[in-house]
Design a protein around this nucleic acid. Structure first.
Lengths: 154, 154
DNA sequence: GAAACATGGATGACACGTCAACTATTCCGG
DNA sequence: CCGGAATAGTTGACGTGTCATCCATGTTTC
């Protein structure tokens, strides 16, 4: 027997879907306009700047981003073409490769980050009370912990 | 001055992003496996079944789905190839076209809907208390009302 | 009623994501 | 050592989304 959604649930679900697509689209549009980066570019660049030496093995990066390796590989190829990153051979392991930030990449992320954070704040957090933020963390944590045990922050 | 995110906010944001991508991916995977439909297909088919005569003008449909016309046009072309919908000429307006559900389309959505709703319930609502559902509706409503006035349900 | 303009919709180019298959190395048991 | 399995990463095909552009038909204005 299908357990259909009641009105309250349908409304929450519809609004969640709408928020998700609009919020993502708006953040993407702004980031693209301000910095010429996609959200995906941004995430890769942030993950790289998080490393002490601004470089990482491809699969390590995939793990940090929780991306499929093929997605990352394709994306890195595009970013390499644009000069945001470089590929460096790996001495220890002939199969492997390091991805390293270029100076263009570093400049791009340093320019982009403040505006992007400001957008997230403006579009999301400014609309929420402190209790809302807690509720959001509780909700996302609860869903994530059933969906992907181990993926919840903290 | 950039207003950076504090730890609480960062955690909520990271988990939100993770939830969004995993929840979407899992729903997509199941829908694809169970019914051979993408989430986009599903939305189009639902929008069409909502119409009394199971057909609609392309731009009307785009409005209902809140999709760009070119996105919808591309998607309808793919769905047409798969026999889920048909295109019917419009007598009143020589430029226009109706999109209509085929019997395959109707069958597909009728088969897919119960399982999909069940997935949404299992992956999302079963993880949430009644208060969480209210909080989710409040949060999504608040964000949407700044982001896209008029797009909030109800 | 013809030129200018608006509208409905399709199309092409390109970025992105997934899946499956592939290549090149490294590892590991005998 | 050698041959097979595992691992690192790439590639190709294809579905999807965006943007800009285009085409055909309607509408408006003089």
């Amino acid at each position: 027997m299908t357990r259909w959604l009641d009105d309250r649930e349908q409304r929450a679900w519809r609004d969640y879907l709408a928020m998700q697509s609009r919020l993502g689209a708006e953040l993407h549009r702004r980031l693209q306009a301000d910095a010429g980066l996609s959200l995906a570019d941004f995430d890769v660049l942030v993950a790289l700047t998080d490393r002490p030496d601004e470089r990482a093995r491809v699969l390590e990066l995939a793990g940090a981003l929780q991306w499929e390796k093929s997605r990352l590989s394709h994306h890195l190829a595009r970013m390499r073409r644009r000069g945001l990153i470089t590929r460096e051979e790996c001495d220890d392991d002939g199969r492997g490769a390091f991805v390293a930030l270029t100076s263009e990449g570093r400049t791009a992320i340093e320019r982009a980050a403040p505006d992007h954070v400001e957008s997230v704040r403006e579009l999301l957090f400014d609309a929420l009370s402190d209790e809302d933020v807690d509720a959001l963390a509780r909700i996302t944590g609860a869903v994530l912990s059933r969906l992907a045990p181990g993926a919840v922050s903290r």
